[in-house]
Write a protein that binds this DNA or RNA. Structure first.
Lengths: 157, 157
DNA sequence: GTCGCTGCAAAGTCTTTGCAGAGAG
DNA sequence: CTCTCTGCAAAGACTTTGCAGCGAC
């Protein structure tokens, strides 16, 4: 009966597609396709997690030690990707943002305050209701985000 | 037909009540009731807006110029109030948090991306649905927040 | 009086920017 | 070749902390 969909493990967008979109985006804006930019996109894609700029930088240094990627480039590329709506950022209580690939289907987040784990979900009913509310208040909706905080299944044990 | 409630202009909690709660809280933890702490609470109460630590500090300097309140004290007091669940903090896209008195009824936020204005609202249907979702996923919900981004009525004109 | 609180300034984080050399187109 | 990118380090923005004197209780 539930229409909740969780955890988008079945990647709906193939990496090749993503990369191609990225290249088109760059070309359109006369920007250059560099190894750093590719590596950042790839690392973001491979990781199902929500990454902070720093953790992303760490992952890159681990996986591509020969490439001396600076943290500044990570920030710059994330900003670029976010501007182009290819990634989405989330700001939770703590300081700093977390980024995730935004090409996936829209979804909301359930955040465990004990282990910090993030579960994604989508609920049609809420989505619809949000649209109605915005409409009733004369608000032209462009985006929304919802977070539920609490203790996850695992941490309850 | 709508069950949306917006903008809590009718203050549900009187300041004297709030102040008294605060004093009890302080006493319980053998903390001291100082002018700075009172002024911070009062300013937060008087302003219906969502304040950043800096804007709160500004307001205090304006309204109580004789009191040399340091920004550090504002941060310290906000942290104390947040720990005690007397205020709630919101983190949006930009950096920094915004604080609001949390003694008010629970509500969500609709944020205008043009003028930055925040409208509060509550919708029963969404609240209920959130509880169900959490339950279905074996998640013990402690809190949640929802933001809708878009262009408000005024800015559309 | 005691012990927590405050303002100040210094130190921390996290993020952005300036610049000269490297590299994509 | 040109013009954007990159890494580095320095600068910024925001927040926290150490400390000596102040003030609530």
């Amino acid at each position: 009966m539930s229409n909740i969909i969780t955890n988008f493990n079945d990647k709906t967008v193939k990496y090749t597609q993503l990369l191609s979109d990225f290249k088109i985006l760059l070309k359109k804006n006369s920007l250059k396709f560099t190894i750093q930019r590719e590596v950042i996109l790839e690392t973001l894609y491979k990781s199902d997690k929500h990454l902070t700029p720093e953790s992303l930088h760490h992952l890159i240094k681990e996986n591509f030690p020969e490439l001396k990627t600076g943290i500044a480039t990570v920030y710059r590329t994330l900003a670029l990707l976010e501007d182009s709506d290819m990634v989405t950022s989330l700001s939770f209580g703590a300081q700093g943002k977390k980024y995730e690939l935004g090409a996936k289907e829209h979804h909301d987040h359930m955040i465990c305050t004990t282990c910090g784990d993030i579960t994604e979900f989508v609920d049609e009913e809420i989505e619809n209701r949000q649209d109605s509310i915005a409409h009733e208040l004369g608000f032209e909706i462009s985006d929304h985000s919802m977070q539920i905080y609490g203790i996850c299944k695992n941490c309850k044990n």
